[in-house]
Design a protein around this nucleic acid. Structure first.
Length: 287
DNA sequence: TAAGATAAGAGGGACAT
DNA sequence: ATGTCAGTCTTATCTTA
């Protein structure tokens, strides 16, 4: 089944024709489930075996119901043992399993889409194949993989967001992030300041009008190349601050500390950006 | 109470040694 | 590899309107 994921707030298409890998039927008890299931778990990179595990049953009957020859039976037992061992008991698989169970927890905490989870898993696998996890913690590499996946997909999540929920220090997270990016030679797109505006505006409960004004202002800033080297979140917060102050509707006024909290930057950063922007006559900022 | 000012300190990139 | 430098952001504190 194909479907697209569309942002309900701004209408942006986040994913197009992504395949829904869940089963299309519903079951209310085990019997019904077994009856309807034609396949196993959906295949996913975010499982140590990609969801493609084998299960060798315990039964001593063959497919047509006859008794299995004891010699074959003992072969099957040995296969079963080895199958089991190769599934989880290689250090790599064990590590993946641990990483992906952590990933599952973080997925919920950060509200990540399946596409991001798959991307994260892909990056983590690559990192593991290249032996980049050695000497670093699984959690740090995993958290960094999440950050990379978010950046690649263009979902604004800051290092701080991820560091708070994963209990990895921002510093370590940033280090692991740069390490993976350089070793895997990844090209990370710059964080889109427009997306940052949308995110901060939603967090601060600002109206569409203010958001729209802020986005227009951000376009002007980009045209005049004033954004270089600035933290996009800080810039977004400042632009929203200016827009909210210029909106006559008093419900739209936000203090610097409100927006600082929403964007995860300090008030001082907002002040500095605001000052700079006000000085630029080309932006025609009132006040 | 919100906003502005100032200073010290952290962390990382660019560049030279 | 290691050190220095300019620029950025954060934290903390004090002042101003």
């Amino acid at each position: 089944m194909l479907r697209s994921t569309i942002c309900q707030k701004c209408g942006a298409i986040l994913e197009i024709n992504n395949i829904d890998q869940n089963h299309e039927w519903s079951a209310f008890n085990i019997e019904e489930f077994n009856d309807k299931a034609r396949t196993g778990t959906p295949s996913s990179l975010a499982r140590h075996d990609m969801g493609l595990f084998t299960v060798i049953g315990r039964t001593d009957k063959d497919a047509s119901g006859g008794k299995i020859d004891p010699i074959v039976r003992s072969t099957m037992e040995r296969l079963k043992t080895w199958d089991y061992r190769t599934q989880i008991h290689t250090p790599a698989a064990r590590n993946l399993r641990q990483a992906f169970s952590e990933l599952d927890v973080l997925k919920a905490k950060l509200g990540l889409s399946d596409a991001i989870i798959e991307k994260t898993a892909y990056i983590y696998r690559k990192a593991q194949e290249r032996r980049l996890v050695r000497g670093r913690t699984t959690s740090a590499i995993l958290a960094a993989s999440i950050y990379i996946a978010c950046r690649e997909i263009g979902m604004p999540r800051t290092l701080k967001d991820i560091s708070t929920v994963s209990n990895i220090k921002r510093k370590d997270l940033a280090r692991s992030y740069r390490f993976i990016v350089s070793k895997l030679e990844l090209k990370i797109p710059v964080l889109d300041p427009i997306k940052c505006i949308v995110r901060v505006a939603n967090k601060a409960n600002l109206s569409e009008i203010t958001k729209r004004k802020a986005i227009d202002l951000m376009y002007k800033i980009n045209e005049n190349e004033l954004a270089a080297g600035k933290d996009p979140m800080g810039l977004a917060a400042s632009v929203l601050y200016l827009s909210s102050m210029n909106n006559r509707d008093s419900n739209e006024h936000r203090t610097q500390s409100d927006l600082a909290a929403a964007a995860g930057v300090t008030e001082v950063t907002i002040r500095n950006r605001t000052q700079e922007l006000r000085k630029k006559s080309c932006l025609k900022i009132i006040r």
